[in-house]
Simulated scan of single mutants.
Amino acid sequence: MKKLLLVLAALLVAACAHAPAQSAKEAGAKTERNFSPAHVKEVIVKGKTTQKEILAKIGTPNSVKRRSLGVTTGPAEVWNYWTAPPLNDVAKGGLQPVTSLAVVFDDNGVVQDYAAADSSVLIQ
């Protein structure tokens, strides 16, 4: 039952994280998204890297959280990236690798902070 619920949750997350359509040129130019901590450390410079650069080097985020209307403090946007184990691996169970990245932007679209992590989940 737990596996079924995990698979259903993964499908729900995948359905909600639909990326915008890309032209054939863009799709051909993109490689697999890489937001491992080592790659992110090379790509992101706090106070310098822009949203446009993040999109070009890492890709479209899985989710975006924007500051509420009328609020003038705190981050303007937070972009979240994550991986999930393939469904075949979920069905097998065991320890599965996952990677996550959160990028915090200011009002000008420049990185204020970020956090990247490689971890794993135990699927029973």
Rank of each mutant, 00 (worst) to 15 (best):
T31I: 09
V111F: 03
G47M: 01
Q112L: 03
G94M: 02
I44V: 06
A10D: 05
V110G: 03
V45A: 08
A10E: 00
A10K: 09
F35P: 03
G47L: 07
L4M: 08
P85L: 08
A84C: 11
T60K: 12
P86V: 06
H18N: 14
A117E: 14
A10I: 03
T99V: 08
V45Q: 13
A76E: 03
R66W: 15
H39K: 13
N88F: 07
E53W: 08
F35D: 05
K41E: 12
V90A: 06
S63C: 03
V64Q: 11
A91Y: 00
A117T: 13
A76H: 00
P37A: 10
Y81W: 02
S63P: 01
K41A: 13
D113W: 10
I58H: 14
V78G: 08
Q22L: 14
N88K: 02
A56H: 14
G94E: 05
K41R: 13
A91N: 00
Q22V: 13
D113V: 02
S100C: 01
L87A: 02
V7E: 02
K30Y: 15
K41I: 13
Q22F: 14
A115L: 12
I58Q: 04
I123C: 06
F105N: 03
L55M: 09
P86I: 05
S36P: 10
A56G: 07
V104N: 12
V111S: 08
E42G: 03
T49E: 09
A19Y: 06
A102R: 10
L12M: 08
G93N: 03
Y81E: 05
S119V: 01
K65Q: 13
D118E: 05
V43Q: 07
E77R: 04
L8D: 13
V13G: 06
M1L: 10
L101K: 12
R33N: 04
A115E: 11
G93V: 02
A21M: 10
L4A: 08
L87N: 07
G74N: 12
D118H: 06
M1D: 02
Q51G: 00
F105A: 09
